[in-house]
Simulated assay, not measured.
Amino acid sequence: MDLFARQWATYQILVEHNLMEHREISNATTGAIQQWLALREEQTQAVSMVDLGCGDLGQLAPLLQTLPLEKYVGLDLTQAVLPLAQRNLGSVPYPCFWEHGDLMNWACSNPNDQFDLIHSSFALHHLDQDQKLLFLEGARERIETNGLFIWVDVFLPNQESRLDYLSRYFNRINQWPGLCQTQRESITQHIQTHDFPANRGWLEKQARALGWSFCWAWNGQHNAEAVALLQPI
């Protein structure tokens, strides 16, 4: 079994056991999009959407199949997930574009190609603090005036250091069912190396300084996973 297959098998266990509250996140995302659509002035106008770090769409596909989209762009750094996403989405009445690429490159290129709806799930925590600011600045240029940016991720509680957060999260991983020790160690190593969650208060302040309104649509029970809603102001 290659590395991607091993990682994907582990991810499926996380979803199956709802270890990162994927079901609650899906419900919160659905509710946020539906409320936003209801408040849009041009309610009959189709919506353009980009999904940054789309993964296999295992959780989001049922919602996407119901949305009045003009077009959908699914972008992911892992090319192997794109055929899985296309298969899970199935037949929909709008054009879909599947792009192998980096979300930072997306944010910092072609500001004239704007979207009504930006969605990113468990991807932006891989960026360091400076990169997050560059992403927010670039994404601000790529969203339509009445648009919505849904940021699903893990975040640091105020006053908690990354080191303390990691220690707390690792203790949580050790209690997750369905995983062998090798899988637990692999997840822990990945998080230690690649995860840099934003501090909540810092993120709120910086987002507003860069021209976004900001609110929390949902907060998970573990003081980590959350859904943030950003809109251009």
Results as ranks from 00 to 15, higher is better:
46 A>C: 01
176 W>G: 10
120 S>L: 12
41 E>A: 15
185 E>F: 06
182 T>F: 04
176 W>F: 15
27 N>K: 06
213 S>D: 14
60 L>Q: 13
139 A>E: 04
86 Q>E: 12
151 W>N: 06
82 L>E: 00
193 T>G: 02
225 E>L: 00
142 R>E: 00
92 V>I: 09
41 E>R: 13
164 D>N: 15
18 N>R: 08
45 Q>H: 04
112 N>G: 07
163 L>P: 02
193 T>K: 05
217 A>L: 04
135 F>W: 13
99 E>G: 07
92 V>H: 03
215 C>V: 11
78 T>F: 00
31 G>Q: 14
46 A>P: 15
62 P>L: 09
198 A>G: 05
120 S>A: 13
148 L>G: 03
76 D>S: 11
9 A>P: 08
94 Y>V: 07
147 G>D: 01
60 L>N: 01
146 N>M: 05
146 N>Y: 09
36 W>R: 11
172 R>S: 04
61 A>S: 07
110 N>G: 05
146 N>D: 10
116 D>R: 09
55 G>K: 08
137 E>L: 15
117 L>F: 03
99 E>W: 11
56 D>C: 04
165 Y>D: 07
106 W>F: 15
214 F>D: 01
214 F>P: 08
93 P>A: 07
88 N>Y: 04
199 N>V: 01
88 N>V: 02
164 D>Y: 07
76 D>P: 10
121 S>R: 12
81 V>S: 02
16 E>Q: 12
78 T>W: 01
115 F>Q: 14
186 S>M: 09
218 W>S: 09
182 T>P: 06
48 S>T: 11
15 V>Q: 13
21 E>D: 10
104 M>R: 11
70 E>G: 10
228 A>Q: 03
58 G>I: 03
129 Q>R: 13
72 Y>V: 08
169 Y>W: 13
153 D>R: 11
132 K>F: 13
158 N>S: 10
48 S>P: 12
84 L>D: 05
232 P>R: 15
51 D>G: 12
215 C>E: 09
90 G>F: 05
38 A>Q: 13
168 R>W: 05
155 F>N: 03
93 P>D: 00
172 R>Q: 10
58 G>L: 05
164 D>K: 14
156 L>P: 06
135 F>V: 11
229 L>F: 08
167 S>V: 01
223 N>K: 08
168 R>V: 01
1 M>N: 03
49 M>H: 04
23 R>F: 02
44 T>Q: 14
60 L>C: 03
14 L>N: 08
74 G>V: 05
6 R>A: 10
178 G>A: 11
111 P>K: 11
206 Q>S: 11
228 A>I: 11
102 D>F: 06
21 E>F: 05
51 D>F: 11
143 I>A: 03
132 K>S: 10
3 L>S: 04
4 F>T: 08
184 R>Y: 00
194 H>D: 13
131 Q>C: 05
42 E>A: 15
10 T>G: 12
155 F>P: 05
30 T>P: 08
173 I>P: 13
3 L>P: 07
201 G>P: 07
231 Q>R: 15
156 L>T: 02
41 E>I: 10
64 L>F: 04
231 Q>D: 12
13 I>H: 03
91 S>C: 12
113 D>S: 15
221 Q>Y: 00
